[in-house]
Computed example of a mutant assay.
Amino acid sequence: MPPITPCLWFDSDLEKAVDFYTAVFPDSSVGHVTRTPGEPGAVLAAEFSINGTTFKGINGGPAHAGFTETISFAIDCVDQAEVDHYWEALTADGGEESMCGWLRDRFGLSWQVVPVRLYELLSDPDPTRARAAAEAMMTMQRIVVADLEAAADGTDAA
């Protein structure tokens, strides 16, 4: 079966986006870059890899409607430090925070930056704890693990 590869349409800043994403995420690399014939330096298409996932991108011009939250990339973070790293990097230089761990980066792509602890708390066998964690999450932009745990435990975060 052939691989399925996400392909992202940028107006004209594909090369900047590729440089940004491969700098933010470890285990990333730039693959083949196709330059526009007759336009020295202009990038037409590129392939890059983030943590083993290959992406393709094109500079297709402004004819598209742009990225929306109907497509997002989820980052399952092992701890708060990892959440904070990706949250800060992806919202920098024009990115926008949203709710419940969602954000939009400066290129308009939507990301879900989620600690795995959230999934654990939402799956807690005690429905009261799970509900309290879910309700706490609904009030957050960036997910804060200590606040989720405090809500599940029925205490204030330290």
Rank of each mutant, 00 (worst) to 15 (best):
Q112C: 10
V145K: 02
V78K: 15
P127Y: 14
Y86C: 10
R142F: 01
C100R: 06
A133M: 10
G154E: 04
P40D: 09
E69N: 07
V18G: 02
P26F: 13
Q141M: 15
A134K: 03
G60W: 07
H64C: 04
P6T: 06
W102L: 14
P3F: 05
D27T: 06
I4N: 02
T70P: 01
F25G: 00
D27P: 01
T139G: 12
H32M: 15
A146M: 01
S49I: 07
F67N: 05
R106V: 12
A157S: 14
G66S: 03
F10T: 03
S49A: 09
V83F: 08
I58H: 03
Q112R: 10
E15V: 09
V113Y: 15
F25Q: 00
D156G: 04
S123E: 12
S49M: 08
T53A: 13
D156I: 02
M138H: 09
A65D: 08
W9M: 13
A74E: 04
A63P: 01
T34E: 13
D19C: 07
M99P: 00
D27H: 09
A152F: 03
T54V: 15
L14D: 03
I75D: 00
P127A: 12
F73M: 13
F67V: 03
I75S: 01
D11S: 09
E47P: 06
A46V: 02
P115L: 15
F55E: 03
F25C: 02
G154C: 04
S98F: 14
L109S: 12
W9T: 08
A150D: 02
G57E: 13
Y21W: 04
R142W: 08
S49G: 11
V30Y: 02
A157T: 05
A133D: 09
V114F: 09
Y119W: 11
T22R: 14
F25S: 01
A130H: 00
L103R: 15
F48G: 05
Y86F: 13
E135D: 11
V114A: 12
C77S: 02
L109R: 11
E135K: 08
S110D: 14
A65E: 10
